[in-house]
Amino acid sequence: MARFLLSRVGFGLLVLFLLSLFVFLLFFIAPGDPARVIAGDKATVEVLAQIRAKLGLDEPIYVQYWLFISNVFQGDLGFSYRNQLPVIDIVVDRIPVTVSLVFGGVILWLGIGIPIGVMSARKPGSVRDRLGQSFAVVGISFPSFVLGMMALYVLYFLPAKAGWKLFPPSGYIPLTVDPLQWAWHLVLPWCTLALVSAAIYARLMRGQMLEVLGEDYIRTARAKGLTERRVVYRHAMRSAMPPLVTQLGTDIGLMLGGVIVIEQVFGLLGVGNLAVSAVNNQDRPVVIGVVLLGGLFVVVMNIIVDTLYAFLDSRIRTAA
């Protein structure tokens, strides 16, 4: 098992290395002169040369990459072209918003998706199943920004126009400042995020459960005289969960990218929002920083999930 995990960590490092190479090369071949972005249009040739030297931009590409990667390992992602602040600080500053969004969203989507999936699978073809399936297909089809904008219009704007303050339009209140306000500001983004993913998980869970419920050992469990509740929640769930956990890890990892749209719609200043504005401002160190952070997030989540999976599956756990 240790061996298995070691190989996963190795793969994660490979992912990160390739990702860093990708962003680095991308910006290296990119048109446009970073020195000019920093110095502005009026800068003289001397100033530009000075900036280039300071950033190592006149070195050969592999030296630049080496400089870049060794800095990254020391936690130094460089400075924003725009406001000269360390990229790491800028990014870290935005993390709480995004993590709050993802955290609440995940809990909500699992809380909605899994029960619907299980209920559907217990009686395939029933009215409950049809309702669950309809929810799933509509949810999967709903682009999250459309859902978000519609939610804002219906749940914020219309009540506000009628003089009724149901939900705030946007903004983020830190959890440490006021937990209630924190949650209240995030309810709409959470729901938007959760509804789409809940639909996917409802389907996934239903499929998994149906497959497991058709297994011979479920028949054995029934023949043993266990209650249907125990058959479903103890025996079937035990086998249906591991694949779901894997999927969840991947999804949470990728969420950092996925929340970009929701942050845009609800005006939340999270990591995704940072990425979009950095792209618009041609602020390359920040873009690189966000992409690398995103990659790191995916890799870490995957390793956690693989560990969990190995622990959950008796066949992997007991393998020498």
């Binding site: 991947t250 990218g257 970009i260 990425a275 792209v279 992409v291």
Partner: peptide, 23 residues
């Protein structure tokens, strides 16, 4: 399979906007 794993573990929207921002 490793290549598929790799592509799947890239935060695609982030990578996409990085790409678009350059090209």
């Amino acid at each position: 399979s490793r290549i598929m794993d790799l592509v799947m573990s890239v935060p695609f929207l982030l990578a996409a906007i990085a790409l678009v921002s350059v090209l």
